[in-house]
Simulated scan of single mutants.
Amino acid sequence: MELTMRHLLLAVPVLLLPLTSSHAQEEHHHHKHEEASSLSAHEHGSARLNAALDGNRLELELISPAMNLLGFEHAPANAADEAKIASARSQLEQPLALFGLPAAAGCSVSEQQFAGDLLGSAHAGYQRGDEHAHKQEHKHDHDDHEAGGHSDIEAHYQFDCSKPDALQALDLKGLFERFPGMEKIQVQLIGPNGQQGAELTPARAQLPF
Rank of each mutant, 00 (worst) to 15 (best):
L9S: 06
L10M: 13
L10Y: 03
L10V: 01
L10G: 08
V12R: 08
V12C: 04
P13Q: 07
P13M: 09
P13F: 05
L15Q: 10
L15G: 07
L15P: 00
L15E: 12
L16R: 07
L16N: 02
L16E: 15
L17A: 08
L17G: 01
L17H: 04
L17Y: 02
L17K: 04
P18H: 09
P18A: 12
P18D: 08
P18C: 09
P18W: 05
P18Y: 02
P18E: 06
L19K: 03
L19V: 10
L19F: 03
L19P: 06
L19A: 07
T20W: 07
T20F: 02
T20A: 15
T20P: 06
S21T: 13
S21M: 08
S21K: 07
S21R: 13
S22C: 03
S22W: 05
H23W: 15
H23Y: 14
A24G: 15
Q25L: 14
E26R: 12
E26F: 03
H28V: 15
H28Q: 14
H28S: 11
H29R: 11
H29L: 14
H29P: 00
H29K: 11
H29G: 06
H30P: 00
H30C: 08
H31P: 05
H31L: 07
H31Q: 07
K32Q: 12
K32G: 02
H33C: 02
E34A: 13
E34Y: 05
E34F: 06
E34W: 02
E35L: 13
E35T: 00
E35P: 02
A36D: 09
S37Q: 10
S37Y: 02
S38Y: 01
S38M: 08
L39S: 01
L39K: 00
L39A: 03
L39W: 05
S40V: 06
H42T: 06
H42N: 09
H42C: 10
H42E: 13
H42K: 07
